[in-house]
Nucleic acid binder design. Structure first.
Length: 182
DNA sequence: ACGATGATGAAC
DNA sequence: TTCATCATCGTA
Protein backbone atom coordinates (compact mmCIF):
# COMPACT_ATOMS: atom_id res chain seq x y z
CA UNK A 1 0.00 0.00 0.00
CA UNK A 2 1.46 3.37 -0.97
CA UNK A 3 1.25 6.63 0.99
CA UNK A 4 -1.75 7.98 -0.88
CA UNK A 5 -3.76 4.81 -0.33
CA UNK A 6 -2.77 4.75 3.31
CA UNK A 7 -4.03 8.26 3.93
CA UNK A 8 -7.47 7.87 2.42
CA UNK A 9 -9.52 4.82 1.67
CA UNK A 10 -9.49 3.97 -2.01
CA UNK A 11 -12.14 1.61 -3.31
CA UNK A 12 -12.44 0.43 -6.88
CA UNK A 13 -16.07 0.80 -7.97
CA UNK A 14 -17.62 -2.65 -8.46
CA UNK A 15 -19.93 -3.73 -11.28
CA UNK A 16 -22.85 -3.42 -8.85
CA UNK A 17 -22.23 0.35 -8.65
CA UNK A 18 -23.18 0.62 -12.33
CA UNK A 19 -26.09 -1.83 -12.23
CA UNK A 20 -28.62 0.92 -11.47
CA UNK A 21 -30.51 3.51 -13.47
CA UNK A 22 -28.17 5.87 -15.34
CA UNK A 23 -29.73 8.89 -13.62
CA UNK A 24 -28.71 7.51 -10.22
CA UNK A 25 -25.27 6.46 -11.42
CA UNK A 26 -24.62 9.80 -13.17
CA UNK A 27 -25.18 11.70 -9.95
CA UNK A 28 -23.22 9.25 -7.81
CA UNK A 29 -20.23 9.40 -10.15
CA UNK A 30 -19.61 13.04 -9.23
CA UNK A 31 -16.61 13.15 -6.91
CA UNK A 32 -15.56 9.64 -7.90
CA UNK A 33 -12.35 9.17 -9.88
CA UNK A 34 -11.60 7.88 -13.33
CA UNK A 35 -8.20 6.20 -13.16
CA UNK A 36 -5.92 5.59 -16.09
CA UNK A 37 -3.04 3.14 -16.00
CA UNK A 38 -0.18 4.99 -17.65
CA UNK A 39 3.60 4.67 -17.50
CA UNK A 40 3.35 2.02 -14.81
CA UNK A 41 1.08 3.93 -12.45
CA UNK A 42 -2.53 4.92 -11.98
CA UNK A 43 -3.37 8.55 -12.71
CA UNK A 44 -6.66 9.59 -11.12
CA UNK A 45 -8.99 12.34 -12.29
CA UNK A 46 -12.04 13.43 -10.30
CA UNK A 47 -15.31 13.36 -12.24
CA UNK A 48 -17.07 16.72 -12.24
CA UNK A 49 -19.76 16.52 -14.93
CA UNK A 50 -21.95 13.69 -16.23
CA UNK A 51 -25.10 13.04 -18.23
CA UNK A 52 -27.55 10.14 -18.16
CA UNK A 53 -28.97 8.41 -21.25
CA UNK A 54 -31.78 6.05 -20.43
CA UNK A 55 -33.33 3.36 -22.61
CA UNK A 56 -35.01 3.07 -25.99
CA UNK A 57 -37.79 5.50 -25.05
CA UNK A 58 -35.23 8.26 -24.40
CA UNK A 59 -35.05 9.91 -27.83
CA UNK A 60 -31.68 11.45 -26.95
CA UNK A 61 -30.19 8.01 -26.27
CA UNK A 62 -28.59 6.18 -29.18
CA UNK A 63 -30.62 3.13 -28.17
CA UNK A 64 -33.76 4.95 -29.35
CA UNK A 65 -32.72 3.64 -32.79
CA UNK A 66 -32.97 0.13 -31.42
CA UNK A 67 -30.37 -2.61 -31.46
CA UNK A 68 -27.68 -1.92 -34.11
CA UNK A 69 -23.97 -2.64 -34.48
CA UNK A 70 -23.19 0.61 -32.73
CA UNK A 71 -25.68 0.32 -29.88
CA UNK A 72 -24.86 -3.31 -29.10
CA UNK A 73 -22.54 -2.18 -26.28
CA UNK A 74 -25.39 -0.23 -24.67
CA UNK A 75 -27.46 -3.40 -24.49
CA UNK A 76 -24.62 -5.32 -22.86
CA UNK A 77 -23.29 -5.67 -19.33
CA UNK A 78 -22.95 -2.63 -17.05
CA UNK A 79 -19.50 -1.29 -16.14
CA UNK A 80 -18.39 -1.59 -19.76
CA UNK A 81 -17.27 1.42 -21.78
CA UNK A 82 -19.37 2.75 -24.65
CA UNK A 83 -17.20 4.86 -26.96
CA UNK A 84 -18.26 6.46 -30.20
CA UNK A 85 -16.99 9.13 -32.59
CA UNK A 86 -18.96 12.36 -32.62
CA UNK A 87 -18.88 15.04 -35.32
CA UNK A 88 -16.17 13.07 -37.07
CA UNK A 89 -13.48 14.15 -34.61
CA UNK A 90 -14.26 13.62 -30.95
CA UNK A 91 -14.62 10.38 -29.04
CA UNK A 92 -17.26 10.35 -26.29
CA UNK A 93 -16.63 8.36 -23.13
CA UNK A 94 -19.64 6.59 -21.63
CA UNK A 95 -20.03 3.86 -19.04
CA UNK A 96 -22.87 1.38 -19.49
CA UNK A 97 -25.36 1.20 -16.61
CA UNK A 98 -28.49 -0.70 -15.62
CA UNK A 99 -28.61 -4.39 -16.60
CA UNK A 100 -28.00 -6.47 -19.70
CA UNK A 101 -30.78 -5.92 -22.24
CA UNK A 102 -31.66 -2.51 -20.76
CA UNK A 103 -29.67 0.01 -22.83
CA UNK A 104 -28.44 2.98 -20.82
CA UNK A 105 -25.23 4.81 -20.07
CA UNK A 106 -23.59 7.77 -18.41
CA UNK A 107 -21.55 10.21 -20.48
CA UNK A 108 -18.46 11.57 -18.70
CA UNK A 109 -18.49 15.22 -19.77
CA UNK A 110 -15.74 16.60 -17.55
CA UNK A 111 -12.99 15.75 -15.12
CA UNK A 112 -11.33 18.15 -12.71
CA UNK A 113 -9.31 20.48 -14.95
CA UNK A 114 -10.52 18.84 -18.16
CA UNK A 115 -13.88 20.29 -19.17
CA UNK A 116 -15.68 18.92 -22.24
CA UNK A 117 -16.37 15.35 -23.37
CA UNK A 118 -14.07 15.61 -26.39
CA UNK A 119 -11.26 17.00 -24.27
CA UNK A 120 -11.64 14.19 -21.74
CA UNK A 121 -11.00 11.48 -24.32
CA UNK A 122 -8.23 13.43 -26.00
CA UNK A 123 -6.42 14.06 -22.71
CA UNK A 124 -6.67 10.45 -21.55
CA UNK A 125 -5.94 9.07 -25.05
CA UNK A 126 -9.20 7.17 -25.21
CA UNK A 127 -10.44 6.02 -28.59
CA UNK A 128 -12.78 3.48 -30.10
CA UNK A 129 -10.62 0.50 -29.15
CA UNK A 130 -11.93 0.91 -25.58
CA UNK A 131 -15.51 0.40 -26.75
CA UNK A 132 -17.07 -2.69 -25.16
CA UNK A 133 -14.20 -3.19 -22.70
CA UNK A 134 -14.89 -3.51 -19.01
CA UNK A 135 -13.74 -0.80 -16.61
CA UNK A 136 -10.84 -2.64 -15.00
CA UNK A 137 -7.07 -2.80 -14.62
CA UNK A 138 -7.04 -5.01 -17.69
CA UNK A 139 -8.59 -2.39 -19.96
CA UNK A 140 -6.39 0.25 -18.34
CA UNK A 141 -9.27 2.48 -17.22
CA UNK A 142 -11.42 2.07 -14.12
CA UNK A 143 -13.29 4.01 -11.44
CA UNK A 144 -12.47 4.59 -7.78
CA UNK A 145 -14.08 6.05 -4.69
CA UNK A 146 -11.28 7.98 -3.00
CA UNK A 147 -13.31 9.22 -0.08
CA UNK A 148 -14.32 12.57 -1.59
CA UNK A 149 -17.78 13.55 -0.40
CA UNK A 150 -19.87 15.80 -2.65
CA UNK A 151 -22.53 17.82 -0.84
CA UNK A 152 -25.99 17.41 -2.42
CA UNK A 153 -26.33 21.18 -2.36
CA UNK A 154 -23.27 21.63 -4.58
CA UNK A 155 -24.70 19.44 -7.35
CA UNK A 156 -26.14 21.40 -10.25
CA UNK A 157 -28.77 19.71 -12.44
CA UNK A 158 -29.57 20.96 -15.94
CA UNK A 159 -30.90 19.65 -19.21
CA UNK A 160 -28.52 17.70 -21.41
CA UNK A 161 -26.28 19.41 -23.98
CA UNK A 162 -26.71 19.11 -27.73
CA UNK A 163 -29.83 16.95 -27.78
CA UNK A 164 -32.48 19.38 -29.05
CA UNK A 165 -33.26 16.88 -31.80
CA UNK A 166 -34.83 14.62 -29.14
CA UNK A 167 -37.78 16.98 -28.75
CA UNK A 168 -38.97 19.02 -25.76
CA UNK A 169 -39.85 16.09 -23.48
CA UNK A 170 -36.50 14.36 -23.64
CA UNK A 171 -34.16 17.30 -24.27
CA UNK A 172 -35.44 19.00 -21.11
CA UNK A 173 -34.92 16.12 -18.69
CA UNK A 174 -32.63 17.37 -15.88
CA UNK A 175 -30.16 14.59 -16.44
CA UNK A 176 -26.93 16.58 -16.58
CA UNK A 177 -25.07 16.71 -13.28
CA UNK A 178 -22.29 19.15 -12.45
CA UNK A 179 -20.25 19.77 -9.31
CA UNK A 180 -20.68 23.46 -8.58
CA UNK A 181 -17.21 24.70 -7.64
CA UNK A 182 -18.11 28.36 -7.19
C1' DA B 1 -20.23 32.33 -36.16
C1' DC B 2 -18.46 28.62 -38.52
C1' DG B 3 -15.80 24.86 -40.57
C1' DA B 4 -13.45 20.47 -39.66
C1' DT B 5 -14.28 15.53 -40.45
C1' DG B 6 -16.04 10.58 -40.59
C1' DA B 7 -19.20 7.03 -38.69
C1' DT B 8 -23.99 5.97 -38.58
C1' DG B 9 -28.72 5.04 -39.88
C1' DA B 10 -32.29 5.72 -43.16
C1' DA B 11 -33.80 6.51 -47.70
C1' DC B 12 -33.81 5.29 -52.40
C1' DT C 1 -24.95 4.00 -52.83
C1' DT C 2 -25.99 8.44 -51.38
C1' DC C 3 -27.48 11.70 -48.00
C1' DA C 4 -28.41 14.30 -43.75
C1' DT C 5 -27.20 14.21 -39.20
C1' DC C 6 -24.38 14.47 -35.28
C1' DA C 7 -24.16 13.55 -26.85
C1' DT C 8 -17.97 18.93 -30.12
C1' DC C 9 -14.07 22.08 -30.35
C1' DG C 10 -10.77 25.52 -31.98
C1' DT C 11 -10.33 29.55 -34.42
C1' DA C 12 -12.21 34.07 -35.81
Amino acid sequence: MNKEEGRKKVKKLAVSFFGKSPVIVAEKLLGKFLVRKHAGKGIAYMITETEAYSGEEDLACHASKGRTIRTETLYGEPAHFYIYLCYGMHYMLNIVTSSKGHPSAVLIRALEGIVGPGRVTKSLEISKNLNGKEASAKSGYWFEDRGVKIDKKSILKTSRIGVEYAGPVWSKKPWRFIVDTT
